[in-house]
Design a protein around this nucleic acid. Structure first.
Lengths: 147, 147
DNA sequence: TAATAACCTACTAATTTAGTCAACTATTTA
DNA sequence: TAAATAGTTGACTAAATTAGTAGGTTATTA
């Protein structure tokens, strides 16, 4: 039960863009340094993010990336979807070897895994990028971070 | 964001044991066939489950595994812990390369990932093995499955 | 004592992850 | 208009993890 680095980086980089890219576009070299993420890897990630219309780009000197929507309009789940970070716990349906698929009847645990996916998905859908940039700790009720 | 096969198999096999091992112990060959899981792999998994005192074993002919507690006393989180299926989303703290560790200050997304871990952990802690054997679909309020 | 089934360890093939590398294209500024 | 900047794209690869397999040992029972 882990998030891939790609997923972690994507969210982190989006927070970075949201914080530092308000006036001028953020170029990825800066994000790379600030967040300690490989530049080439960031390029791949932003490729996906752009395709999902979460960011817009500006080429040439002084260019870079900006958010394409307000940060309170971007859900963390949107970011996950953009980079194809799937929430997949069942294992059913994809491979013919699985005990669930093929047979036509659900495996004993099918509903449970689906519910777990729902719990995770609901949470990711309820948190917005702005929640992270505002440095709130989201946990039911929201409390400010003392930092 | 995936569960490993080991995790899926462990939960599935525990449900199997709970269902079929009430009177006589379940031997793993049968579980293997019923749930379509490799026998050797099951052996490894039950090694862990036994070490965590979730099951007890009986060697020799007619032997096998039984639950070591009532199924309404075993939480899914217990099973995850037994087989070391970690809920780890931060990526901070473990490797020195991560943007969070070393520097002494939390990365921008640290609290978010911790909250996500909390959401998942709470859910897994709230569901019992008996919830699965009774074929309930757990989702906030519980509804019976029409099957 | 033969069969059964748990127990244990080492090994490996396949897959996924986390990148690297190299080239190309568009834009801006000097 | 040339040079520099920065995004765009695709192919490749090393490392790590996963998902097993294989082969034996030990304990128990009929």
């Amino acid at each position: 039960m882990k998030i891939t680095s790609k997923g972690r980086y994507a969210v982190l980089a989006m927070v970075d863009i949201a914080k530092f890219g308000e006036d001028t576009p953020c170029n990825l070299s800066h994000v790379s340094v600030r967040q300690n993420i490989s530049l080439s890897y960031l390029e791949q990630i932003f490729n996906d993010l752009k395709r999902a219309n979460l960011v817009k780009s500006q080429k040439g000197p002084g260019g870079g990336y900006k958010l394409n929507k307000e940060s309170n309009e971007i859900r963390i789940l949107d970011i996950f979807n953009a980079i194809d970070e799937q929430i997949k716990t069942t294992g059913c349906g994809n491979d013919p070897k699985s005990s669930c698929s093929g047979t036509g009847k659900k495996c004993l645990t099918h509903n449970f895994w689906e519910n777990l996916e729902g719990v995770i998905g609901n949470y990711l859908n309820s948190v917005y990028l702005s929640d992270l940039t505002e440095e709130y700790s989201i946990s039911g009720e929201r409390r400010a971070i003392s930092e």
